[in-house]
């Protein structure tokens, strides 16, 4: 029974599914605040959600050390990732190229992950963070490249410190981590360039 969870749940059509998931993520990364729907979902072991699983299958492999929250690390997920992507699991946040945070988990400080270097800012981590939903949360105002004037998002399930974390991350530019938020089968990207502010009521 345990093995079934590890060996199943990847893409039915790996080539075309990975392409379609990537295009959704690419479009969302290029247009921060835009909510995309992931068409080809994966079934990773609980408690990771379908969209986060699809992102992992699309982007992770033996070149990308992955950091997992303590609860994910205790689940069947390390075996599932290892079997389907070959990605090594690391306990060191600063070594990780990808990090996965499930719904309702404590969001670790961004500063603990690699922001890249001033010469190579691309050598930074991408955090895949699950939230409860993209509606009815505290409204956040986004601006920056990829956004015409400004965009407003209202994700539910981010900590109160999120705006401060994002501001510190933005201040390091060009270094910094990039965020992929997921809720169910939907995705929203916040690259390091995006300026995130609380919207005044």
């Amino acid at each position: 029974m345990a093995d079934t969870q590890i060996f199943s749940g990847a893409f039915a059509e790996p080539v075309l599914a990975a392409q379609s998931v990537f295009r959704t993520v690419m479009d969302c990364m290029a247009r921060p605040g835009t909510i995309g729907t992931i068409a080809a979902t994966a079934r990773p072991p609980q408690p990771l959600g379908v969209a986060a699983g699809a992102v992992a299958l699309t982007l992770c492999d033996h070149d990308t050390p992955v950091w997992l929250t303590p609860q994910l690390a205790r689940s069947k997920l390390p075996g599932w990732l290892s079997f389907h992507t070959g990605a090594p699991i690391t306990g060191e946040k600063h070594e990780a190229r990808f990090a996965f945070v499930e719904k309702e988990a404590v969001l670790p400080g961004f500063a603990l992950f690699s922001p890249g270097t001033q010469e190579y800012p691309d050598r930074s981590a991408t955090l895949v963070v699950e939230v409860d939903s993209f509606e009815d949360g505290r409204p956040l105002k986004l601006s920056g490249p990829g956004i015409r004037d400004e965009a407003v998002i209202a994700p539910q399930g981010l900590p109160d410190t999120f705006v401060a974390l994002a501001e510190a991350n933005r201040a390091m530019f060009p270094r910094g981590v990039d965020l992929i938020l997921v809720a169910g089968d939907r995705v929203l990207c916040l690259p390091r360039t995006t300026v995130i502010k609380n919207r005044e009521a």
Binding site: M29, D61, T64, D122, P174, D178
Partner: peptide, 16 residues
């Protein structure tokens, strides 16, 4: 190779 290029593209978009 595609995964490697796709990761590169995402970082390129994040650092215009």
């Amino acid at each position: 190779t595609k995964r490697m290029i796709r990761r590169t593209i995402l970082k390129a978009i994040a650092i215009p």
